[in-house]
Amino acid sequence: MLVFTILVKLGLWQLDRAAEKQALQQALTLKQAAAPLDYQSLLVLAKRGSLTGYRLEVQATPVDAPIILLDNQVYEGHVGYLAYQVMRVEADAPLLMVELGFVDSGLDRQKLPQITRMTQTVTLSGRVYQRASNPLSQHLLPEVGDPMRIQNLNLTELSQQLGMPLAPAILQPEAIPGGALPHPWLPIPMSAQKHQGYALQWFSMATVFLMLMTYLLIFKRKNKESSENK
């Protein structure tokens, strides 16, 4: 009964996770349907909850900072980096990290890719996101240089490393002048459908286990009755 109970609870836990993901997806849909935010509105909303999915339109100017390469990213079966550039939106506001896109790392990890950066003030429109922290590995672990390779997108530590205040979200533009890198979008790492599929697997295992235990119990009773009759 203990094993059966554990399997059922695991299935129920996956159903709960599926419900959470459905709620997140609905919230993302509403954010995408809303009008684009201005920068000050985004900074105000940062104090209230998740910014992922909001649309943002800004006029941004490059600043003197290295290109940031987030390591160990995967896109369409290729391993590489997500490249970012630091931009200024307003004079006295935190700087904005803008995603330049995914770039393949190549075979030689000692040679970092050279990224074409924006050099002029541009108008950018797109959606913003915040990366979920990994409790097993969340520190920046920077390799200082230009570009600067980091292991986790810890904006607090990156701000300290650069000596610049950074906004708590990243802009993924719909288009960058002169840029052609792809922009992966995965705001919810695992869909509600996958959680439902895992729940079905746990419930199936619980059912098979219960049927097996029932069969063994009946078989044991029959053997006991046969021994008594003899």
Rank of each mutant, 00 (worst) to 15 (best):
T29Q: 11
Q193W: 09
R88L: 12
L212C: 10
S133F: 10
A83N: 04
W13I: 05
I6Y: 12
G80V: 00
Y75D: 06
L112V: 07
P173G: 03
A192E: 04
D92Q: 13
E225T: 15
D38F: 07
T121Y: 12
P187G: 04
R48A: 15
M118F: 08
G178P: 10
L56C: 02
L124Q: 01
Q26F: 11
E90L: 08
K222A: 12
N223Q: 14
Y54S: 00
Q172L: 06
L45W: 05
A23G: 09
L216H: 15
V122C: 06
S227I: 08
Q110F: 14
L171F: 09
D16A: 13
L37E: 00
F203I: 07
L181K: 07
D38N: 11
G106P: 05
P36W: 01
L70N: 03
F4D: 05
K21V: 13
L166M: 10
L210Y: 03
A180Y: 13
K230W: 15
L217A: 13
S226E: 14
N154C: 04
Q193V: 13
L124D: 01
G53Q: 01
Q32A: 08
V58P: 00
P113N: 09
D16V: 15
Q151K: 12
T52D: 03
D38P: 03
L7M: 06
Y54F: 07
A206K: 05
L100N: 00
Y215F: 09
Y75S: 09
L12C: 12
I115T: 10
Y75W: 10
